[in-house]
Design a protein around this nucleic acid. Structure first.
Lengths: 191, 191
DNA sequence: CCTACCGATCGGTAGG
DNA sequence: CCTACCGATCGGTAGG
């Protein structure tokens, strides 16, 4: 049964490097020393494989922020925690995260819709963090939707340039980026 | 000769909606009421078509920031101007910008390398803006590379959520986002 | 998990 | 710009 896990792992790598449509079932099979058709003992379509990868990634983002919201109540702590968690999900699953951001558009309309709904839910949680900070007088009274978009832009774009073999840990990078963003959000004199 | 222009425009739209590999030459031809093979009177390969789109987009980003650097010398004015210019390039060429960010990896190794070099050059210009601001004592002494990455994350991710039919102009959005980012960069009491 | 195969579609070309 | 076609490759299946 670890076979499906192996297949997902190889697919994540190839999909992230070449893209979904530029990767054939035979490309994936070859890396596992199998024949093309043999994959269909474990998956039923190529799109199901993409869906499995995207679905798992989406779940990880949601679970990560939910854990932070449960544990922290201070807006600044929530912000730092959620940002660090988001970056950690990307850093620990870089190929899968890349596929999630890049290839979800190749899914069927219904699955695409599910991804969009999950993304909206995730963004709503982030907006709640920003809104709470303003409400408590810790953040400046910025436009919540716009500020959240800015924060998530930095958090999401991380997958584009982060390389695990680089000198700095993902946590250290996350903290520095969130301090930069917080500096623009927190009221002067506070924090 | 307007034919190549028509082909590029259709290709931009389809590549941005479905992706490069999910769009066939026949898909493009059909939108132009042509037969598949007829496109090859105007292009020589499908990849050349992608390259044309990506190359033009890259050029526009570079020209936009160069114009700002020529005209402005104050760090804050440069920052605002470059941010606005970047967002404007995306807003005025949303399909092409989407293809630029999404599909450049599908190009041949040499062309991919050219895109990376252009991107590095572009980022270096942004770093110069940030570095200049710090040097003149207008910006806080942040990590230049990291701050620039944050700024470009927000600027780049714009293509993911901006819709021209929305209520706000791209300029208005750009100014609000750059104020948010500047609030995190500029020294307290300044600006 | 393999062998052998299916129909469909792909990018691209020749010849007009 | 069309007709007609090329070889290659695609996702997927049957039968073992």
């Amino acid at each position: 049964m670890g076979r499906l896990e192996d297949i997902c792992q190889v697919a994540e790598r190839l999909f992230s490097e070449r893209g979904y449509h530029a990767t054939s079932i035979r490309d994936i099979a070859r890396k596992l020393h199998l024949q093309g058709g043999s994959l269909y003992a474990h998956i039923s379509t190529k799109e199901d494989l993409l869906w499995e990868i995207v679905r798992r990634a989406a779940e990880q983002f949601l679970q990560a922020i939910e854990a932070v919201l449960r544990q922290e109540s201070d807006p600044v702590a929530r912000f730092r925690g959620a940002f660090r968690a988001h970056v950690a999900v990307i850093a620990r699953n870089l190929p899968a995260a890349t596929v999630y951001f890049h290839e979800w558009r190749q899914l069927s309309p219904q699955r695409r819709e599910a991804v969009l709904q999950q993304r909206d839910l995730y963004e709503a949680m982030w907006r709640e963090i920003v809104r709470g900070g303003i409400e408590q007088g810790v953040f400046r009274p910025v436009d919540v939707a716009m500020a959240t978009r800015a924060v998530l832009s930095v958090a999401n774009w991380f997958y584009q340039w982060y390389r695990p073999e680089g000198p700095r840990s993902a946590e250290s990078i996350a903290d520095e980026l969130s301090e930069l963003l917080l500096a623009g959000l927190v009221k002067e004199g506070q924090s």
